[in-house]
Each structure stands twice: as C-alpha cells, then as structure tokens.
Design a protein around this nucleic acid. Structure first.
Length: 471
RNA sequence: GGCGACGUAGCCAAGUGGUAAGGCAGGGGUCUGCAAAACCCCUAUGCCCCGGUUCGAAUCCGGGCGUCGCCUCCA
C-alpha cells in the first residue's frame, strides 16, 4: 500500500491508480532559457525514484515531462544573444539531458516540447473559446475567463476574490478581468511567432500542460508533479483549463516538491543564485549529489550548503567502500538464524516500506546505513561470506530504486601514466622498507589530488580527492 | 496584507499520541611500518517559548517568537 500526499486535498492518501496496473505521470519540466541549477535536479531525481519504486511494486509506468521551449524569457534572451529561440532552447535542453543522465535519471517516456505540439494546443484553446470559457480580443490575445470557472483557487487555497488574488496581477488593456490569464499571446512585430486562428503569436505558459498531458496520458492521469512554486499560478490555471474542458479533475494526485535554497534563499534562474549543476558534477561523484538530494524528504525545503554535501559524501563513501568489497561475491547459501542475518534477510521489506510512505527517501537511506552496520556485525562474528553475500543483494536492491552506487562514469578516473609510475615506484620502496621514500611519494600524489591508502593485505587503493571549494 | 510551510544535538536530518531513526563532526578502542581508510563502543531525560487536552505529546489544540515559500518568470 503506497501512501502519497496530495496537494489538492492536503492529505496523505492511499494511492489507487485509475487504471491499474498502469500509472500515468505528468511532471512539469524546465523552461530552457538558461543553464539548469541544482533546484532542477530535485524533481528530476525525485520522479526518477518514484517511477522506479512504482515499477518495483509492479506498476507499469508511463512518464511524461515537458520542455517549455517557447516563452517570453526565451524570446527575450535569444534576441539579446542574437540567436534563435529554438537553438537557445536546444542548447539548454541538451545540457539538461546530459546532466540528468549523469545523475542516473532514467529518461521519461515522452519529453514533448511546446513547439512540436502547437496544433494540439490551438485545438485546446479553440475548444475553450467554443465553450465560452475563453475569449479572443482584437489585439490577438486569447484569455481564460476566470469568472466563469467557479472553482478557481481550489488548488492553491486562494479565493477568487479579485481584490486579493489580483493585487499584483498586471492589468492588460484587453482583459475583461484582471485575473484572466493568457492562453495565446500576440507577438510583437520583432518577435518570433507561430501562426494561429488569432494571428501571429505564441501559447501562454499554462495551456501547454493541459494540452500535452491530455494528448499523451488522456483526460485523467494518476500523478501530476512539479515544484511547489508552480502551484500558483501555473497549476491552478492548468487545473482550471483542463477541468473546464473535460469536466473532470485531470490528476488523481498532485505532488509538489519543496524548494532548494542556499542561505535560506530560494535558488532561481531569475535571481541568478542557482548552484550550477555542471560545476557540482565536476567536483562531486554524481551519486553523492543524487543521494544528497534524497537525504531530505521531498516536500521539505532543502537548504544547500557545500559543507553539508561534503559531509554527506563522506557518509556515502562508507557505503561505496562496502560495495567495492562485495560487488562480485556469491549469494549467501547457509541459513544461520542470527539477529543480524534476519535483519539482512528482511532488509528490502523495510526499505520499500519507507518508500511506500510518501516516498520517504531519507528513511530509506537510513535503512541503507543500518544495512551496512548489520553486515559488519556478521563479518565481526566470523560469518563473512554470509554477511557479504547479503550486502551485495541488498545494496543492489537499494540501488535499483534509489540509485546510489557508483556508476562507470564516476569511476572513469583514468590515471595519468605518471601517477601509475609513481605508484609502482612507491610499492618498490615499501617492499624495500624504504618508508621515507614511500611517504614522500604519497605526499607528492596527494598534492596532485590522488589519495593513496594502504590496506592490510599489502594492496592499496587510490582515489581522487573530493575538492571542497572555499567559498 | 492574503495563502501555505517550517523551527528536533555542534552541523544535516527522520519521526503526526506511547516514551527521541540515520549521517557528519567529536571522544574512546581494534587494525596498520606510518598515515589514512575501515570496523566496534560512546555522545539530546529532551524536540523554539508559554499555556491547554490526555494515563501519556516532538507529535493534538490555543497564544507568542523566529525563518522561509507563493501571491510576478520560476523546479
């Protein structure tokens, strides 16, 4: 039984898919007018975990995440840069896809772009006009008629009292009501445009999601995701559009993730205070970053600090170290009946139960650390092969859903031939008991970022040091 | 001003009525040529403050104080 918190009803409820065993998911993606920052990785990783967990629980998942590849910011920025909207969007989409790939995020089944779905969007708008739920103006704009939609404000908890809702809403000359929002915006003479029954222009921000979610998933789908900052106005408007058109709630459950802040200030592209993902991925193992974002329950805000990330990475290194030791060991063959073994045998049950409860990845990760502890308890009792066998099985199971073990791209730290030579030289020195020389070589390697650790069996392990940037 | 979150050890963070998960840092050990790593043990009589409900509250209710998000593009 999976429990999920629904932002619309503000309750945690048992998840019951509309059409089991299928689960349909629509997540609001990014507007690729600038580089993605850490905040964009949170929903991507969250939904990746949700998807993997649902699949582990036997569901067939269909996952759609859009790209808003046309909007005011893209138009403005591409003009500033002297490039086209589509090439600016493609640049940032490609980068986003590459970073998500590094973070182990499985690609959504569909990643529709607004510019590739204009006919569906225009059809949707025409239908709303036909229902008298929207109106076109002489300026070539089309607006949604909020007054005609009684439930406006249901999702965000705002009343449709214009005096409150419209305090800071920009008044447009051709709106009947300041609360009305654009479904189609007329292009200015110098702007890129698409043609429509209302003239040259582009879709409003919210209509794309109503059109594309229904196109790819149907009038009703199971889960709708996005950042909490999208709840109003974006999701409120989207709900209004879809409910008006179809007469039913589009989503069975609305799932909103909390914001990532830095120094308690929200990261945002417009503020320019976002921590660049590419930079972080260069300096930390991708799985450290991924698991760090999962170390806080998704609805809570996550205040990012480099120090916290570095601390978290140290903790994860213990898990990775155990994985290195067990990745090729055999499955346990004997049944001992000890307490630690029983816990190892029931690990997955507890692990999945954590995720069943509103995808509590923080608790699931705590189970992983407990798992490490239980394994060593077995090792310390002399039952090494049984304990390590369980470690391999359980770490793999945790990894399958959470994604936390090193991937090949992380391990691609090909050593410089010079580093290899130094290591060989140092080994010879140690064999000759020339520890003074050996230590000197270790210092040299450390200065160039390679940490050498000697093991008790005579071998050694070389790792690249995680660099914590000062300030 | 309206709507909504949150405040748990030095730091990060779970926990929605039953007597404080987990991680980092810190202290003490084991192991090691040394070092590091790894492993073991220890570390909040208390959960922002004040009242209340209850046999029992970090958890529920009321009132404070503080922080943040949304109301404008935003994951």
């Amino acid at each position: 039984m999976i429990m999920i918190y629904d932002s619309l009803t503000r309750t945690k409820r048992v998840f019951e898919p509309i059409n089991p065993p299928e689960v349909s998911i629509y997540v609001c993606g990014v507007t690729p007018y600038a580089e993605s920052h850490l905040g964009h990785a949170r929903p991507a990783i969250l939904w990746d975990v949700i998807k993997r967990h649902l699949m582990r629980r036997g569901y067939l998942v269909r996952h759609v995440q859009n790209f808003t590849d046309i909007d005011d910011k893209l138009v403005a920025r591409s003009r500033d840069l002297g490039t086209s909207v589509s090439s600016l969007a493609s640049l940032h989409i490609d980068e986003y896809v590459q970073w998500m790939n590094q973070l182990g995020v499985l690609p959504p089944d569909y990643t529709p772009r607004v510019t590739e779905n204009l006919s569906s969007i225009i059809d949707f708008i025409e239908a709303l006009i036909a229902q008298n739920q929207a109106y076109a103006t002489t300026l070539g704009n089309v607006y949604f008629r909020v007054d005609k939609y009684a439930e406006y404000g249901r999702l965000s908890g705002r009343t449709s009292d214009a005096g409150r809702l419209g305090v800071r809403v920009e008044l447009a000359d051709d709106k009947e009501n300041p609360l009305d929002f654009a479904l189609w915006k007329a292009a200015l003479p110098h702007e890129e445009y698409f043609t429509s029954p209302w003239g040259r222009g582009r879709p409003g921000w919210h209509i794309e999601c109503s059109a594309m979610s229904s196109l790819y998933l149907g009038q009703r789908f199971d889960l709708h995701g996005g950042g909490i900052d999208l709840m109003f106005p974006h999701h409120e408007n989207e709900l209004a559009q879809s409910k008006s058109y179809f007469g039913t709630d589009p989503a069975g459950c609305w799932v909103h993730n909390g914001m990532i802040t830095q120094g308690n200030v929200k990261m945002s592209k417009s503020l320019g205070n976002g921590t660049n993902l590419g930079d972080l991925l260069n300096r930390y193992p991708a799985m450290a970053l991924r698991s760090y974002l999962l170390s806080v329950q998704y609805r809570n805000p996550l205040d990012f600090s480099e120090e916290a990330l570095a601390d978290w990475t140290h903790g994860m290194e213990r898990v990775w170290q155990l994985w290195e030791r067990v990745r090729n060991v055999a499955s346990p063959s004997r049944k001992l009946g000890t307490k630690w073994e029983n816990r190892l045998a029931s690990f997955e049950e507890r692990f999945l139960a954590c995720l069943d409860d509103d995808f509590n990845t923080a608790r699931a990760l705590a189970e992983v650390f407990d798992l490490v502890h239980d394994v060593y308890r077995g090792v310390n009792e002399g039952e090494t092969s049984t304990a390590l066998g369980w470690a391999r099985i359980n770490l793999q199971k945790a990894h399958d859903v959470l994604g936390l073990l090193p991937v090949e791209s992380d391990r691609s730290m090909e050593m410089d031939p010079l580093v290899t030579r130094l290591l060989t030289w140092r080994e010879q020195a140690r064999r000759d008991k020339n520890f003074l020389l050996g230590d000197e070589i270790r210092v040299i390697l450390e200065k160039s970022g390679w940490v050498v650790e000697d093991r008790s069996d005579g071998s050694n392990m070389v790792t690249r040091r995680v660099e914590v940037q000062d300030d």
